[in-house]
């Protein structure tokens, strides 16, 4: 397989992976966009989703696609609990408080998961057909992940544009005082947005297991948190739609740059892809802090 074929196949995988990355970041951007809180404990919620998919499949044989709905429900509940117990008291607090609090929440969830489920690395085998690409192959579960992620993003989009509640959220983002005057209960909108953001994150945890059904463990979220930060910034940090598109860009960037970096002798190209990713993050923050796709709000 020549260089170009490899590049092409990597880009295809990059798009598939990017769809999951995108959804995994939408929750982060939604929460920041509405509440101005960076959820540093992001990865822990994602991990809950991965475990949900694993347990539902292992115990009840539930297909991971169905688990997405369960995950959304679990995520909503978890989001409301977290909001009313902690986050509510931190609205408008300095970054120091919110960053630390969300980190603490994430840590607590991880340790609790370790206590309940143990430190084992788990996984499940959901057999799906695959498409052969000559020397490699794409399994259908990855395509399901892509489709599911697009559907969820689209439904969310419609919800924001068409429903009253969705419009209320947008109103709060645009003008908090104005919304209050119009009789919108701002705290409730915050609660809903936070819960929705967490639900999306938990659901994306399920999708991640569709992509990689192994290596599920209490500390798996950390890597995704870091990636989500980069992607969120690419997408403008405040916009879930921006984040969704940016996921694709990041997937392409990650996989594409691997092939190009492989041309440099005496380096570890895969490790360098992460260097490239974080450098991109810095450049965008400095040149265009509103994100690659412009300051598109929700």
């Amino acid at each position: 397989m020549g260089f170009w074929e490899q590049l092409a196949s990597n880009l295809v995988f990059g798009i598939l992976l990017g769809s999951v990355y995108g959804l995994a970041t939408m929750g982060l951007s939604l929460i920041f966009g509405v509440l101005r809180i960076v959820n540093v404990g992001h990865g822990a919620f994602l991990m809950i989703g991965a475990y949900a998919a694993f347990w539902l499949f292992t115990l009840f044989g539930l297909s991971p696609i169905a688990s997405i709905f369960m995950a959304l429900a679990v995520g909503l509940a978890l989001g409301f609990i977290t909001f009313y117990s902690v986050i509510k008291r931190l609205i408008g607090a300095p970054e120091l408080s919110t960053l630390l609090a969300t980190f603490g929440i994430g840590l607590f969830i991880e340790e609790l998961a370790k206590l309940v489920w143990g430190p084992d690395y788990r996984g499940y085998s959901w057999d799906t057909p695959y498409i052969s690409l000559g020397i490699s192959a794409i399994s259908f579960s990855k395509i399901y992940a892509l489709l599911a992620s697009i559907v969820i993003a689209f439904l969310l989009f419609m919800w924001f544009k068409k429903t009253k509640l969705g419009m209320a959220v947008r109103a709060v983002v645009e003008d908090k005082e104005g919304a209050m005057v119009c009789g919108i209960d701002v705290t409730r909108i915050y609660a809903l947005s936070f819960a929705l953001g967490i639900a999306l994150t938990v659901a994306s945890g399920v999708l991640i297991t569709l992509f990689v059904p192994v290596g599920i463990n209490p500390y798996m979220g950390g890597e995704y948190t870091l990636k989500a930060f980069v992607i969120a910034v690419l997408g403008g940090l405040t916009s879930p739609w921006g984040a969704f598109y940016a996921g694709f860009i990041f997937g392409l960037l990650e996989n594409g740059s691997y092939t190009l970096l492989g041309l440099i002798p005496d380096v570890e190209p895969f490790s360098l892809t992460r260097f490239i990713a974080f450098t991109t993050l810095l450049i965008i923050l400095l040149i265009k802090p509103t994100g690659l796709l412009g300051g598109e709000e929700m």
Partner: peptide, 12 residues
């Protein structure tokens, strides 16, 4: 938050 994330980027 933008500064916080940028510094994470530097470290990683």
């Amino acid at each position: 938050a933008y500064f916080a994330i940028a510094t994470i980027g530097v470290n990683e």
